[in-house]
């Protein structure tokens, strides 16, 4: 799943980047500093430690009961997160202002094993897909370096699934949620093709980085 997403986004960026080599008839806009201002940009973001589910995973707690419970026969495997991935498009009518949308994904999974034999019992998966309109404010715009902040709030879809040891689906559950992403500070380096890093907090990531392309 992860490789599929990665490959799709990589190919998409490659296509968009190569399209710019065709004769451009639209006049380039110059900013106040004399350098070219690009109205559009796309980004690929990879982020770590989304804020959701930073608690305790799926609760095979020791159940809060003195009576015997099915979870007493199981123990938790490692609780893992895929990290967050997002593809975004932003439009900049002004050098200091951009707005657009990012489409993001993050996933969690955790297996349960039997206490007596350590064999796989079941695996829980949770997939989050988010559509987040975002506004970005750039407060430092140099030729190659920009500092900015951004905020976004949107719509998310959560799909929870549980599969048994044979891979058969035993439980499936869908729900909606409100993803929020707030970036107090981000920095991008580069002109058309650039890299960026952000200190951020939200449903997609708490620390993110990526590459983008302006056109």
């Amino acid at each position: 799943m992860k490789r599929f997403i990665f490959l799709s986004i990589a190919l998409l960026i490659a296509v968009v980047a190569s399209a710019q080599s065709i004769n451009e008839t639209k006049p380039l806009r110059l900013g106040p500093d004399g350098y070219v201002h690009y109205d559009h940009e796309i980004r690929l973001t990879v982020g770590a430690s989304p804020i959701d589910h930073l608690e305790y995973g799926w609760a095979i707690w020791e159940p809060n009961s003195e009576l015997i419970h099915p979870d007493d026969f199981l123990y938790n495997g490692a609780y893992k997160n895929s990290c967050g991935y997002a593809l975004s498009y932003m439009y900049s009518p002004r050098k200091w202002l951009s707005f657009g949308l990012y489409v993001g994904y993050t996933g969690w999974w955790q297996s349960q094993f039997t206490n007596s034999t350590s064999q796989l019992h079941s695996t829980n998966f949770e997939h989050h897909i988010m559509f987040v309109p975002t506004v970005r404010f750039s407060y430092l715009n140099r030729r190659n370096v920009r500092l900015y902040s951004s905020v976004g709030i949107g719509y998310g879809l959560c799909l929870e699934r549980t599969k048994d040891s044979n891979g058969a689906l035993t439980q499936s559950y869908k729900s909606a949620f409100v993803p929020v992403q707030f970036t107090p500070i981000g920095v991008s380096v580069g002109r058309r093709l650039y890299g960026f890093a952000e200190l951020t907090v939200g449903s997609m990531a708490n620390l993110s980085a990526g590459i983008g392309f302006r056109f």
Partner: peptide, 10 residues
């Protein structure tokens, strides 16, 4: 950076 382990297995 991907595939973080949030908690180790019990």
């Amino acid at each position: 950076l991907t595939s973080c382990t949030i908690y180790e297995a019990d």
